[in-house]
């Protein structure tokens, strides 16, 4: 049990963020109104996703150096959980867009960038499934994963900052930032990111243990 302390931390942080995110006083900003609280829910999905994708690419690079099957499995699982969080990010953003802009999707650099990133990781999953040879699959998908991570950095972090976007925080639209001078939101926002990332790691750990069991069972049968 002692090695599971971080799971308790994850639960406490997420619970704190879920409850605190609804109860604390937030800045009164136009357009956003009460939905500024989505920072604690929608935005944390993306942050946790980016952290997990970083873990994924680190394991892919590790695999390319070591050639260990387990590193490849870790890269795949981290990307799977990250992709899951990314899909939740897209879905929650889409609901918000419907009620704020009047459409589930608009042609906006930030939104399209997010879609490209998600698609790049779906392609990673499809690529993985298209190989029969395990070593070939691991090697090629590890290289592709590095490419997908570069796409993530470009389309989620760089391009939306270079162009104008309707998304909060871009192009002078109100959002939580140093210009809006609100430090109270950080008290919820940062724990939420850590908490959801750890929940993602927990899910990944479960998947990895299942994977190891499957491998062990196959080895025992041989």
């Amino acid at each position: 049990m002692a090695k599971n302390w971080w799971k308790a931390v994850a639960v406490i942080l997420v619970l704190f963020a879920l409850i605190g995110g609804l109860l604390i006083d937030v800045p009164r900003l136009p357009i956003l109104n009460e939905t500024i609280r989505n920072l604690f829910y929608h935005v944390t999905m993306w942050f946790a996703m980016m952290i997990l994708m970083t873990a994924s690419v680190v394991y892919s690079i590790k695999y390319l150096r070591s050639g260990k099957e387990l590193d490849d499995a870790k890269a795949k699982i981290a990307a799977e959980i990250g992709l899951f969080l990314g899909v939740l990010g897209i879905a929650t953003g889409s609901i918000w867009a419907k009620f704020t802009w009047g459409a589930y999707w608009i042609n906006d650099p930030k939104l399209n960038g997010a879609a490209v990133t998600i698609l790049a990781y779906f392609a990673y999953m499809i690529l993985r499934n298209s190989f029969d040879d395990e070593e070939k699959r691991a090697k090629i998908s590890a290289v592709y994963n590095i490419f997908a991570y570069v796409l993530l950095i470009v389309f989620l972090m760089i391009l939306p900052r270079m162009t104008d976007s309707l998304h909060p925080g871009n192009g002078g639209n109100p959002a939580f930032s140093q210009y809006d001078l609100d430090n109270t939101m950080r008290i919820i926002f940062y724990p939420a990111i850590i908490g959801w990332t750890l929940i993602g790691v927990w899910l990944g750990e479960l998947k990895l243990r299942l994977h190891k069991l499957r491998i062990k069972k196959l080895e025992d049968e041989l």
Binding site: L18, I19, L22, W202, L203, L206, L210
Partner: peptide, 27 residues
């Protein structure tokens, strides 16, 4: 609303803990 969300999250966590335990047993 806070109570509803908290209950849902705690429910999911309990489910994850039980999955975790089942895996430990199998291991």
């Amino acid at each position: 609303v806070v109570a509803v969300i908290a209950i849902i999250f705690i429910g999911i966590v309990i489910y994850m803990i039980s999955l975790d335990r089942k895996l430990s047993k199998l291991e």
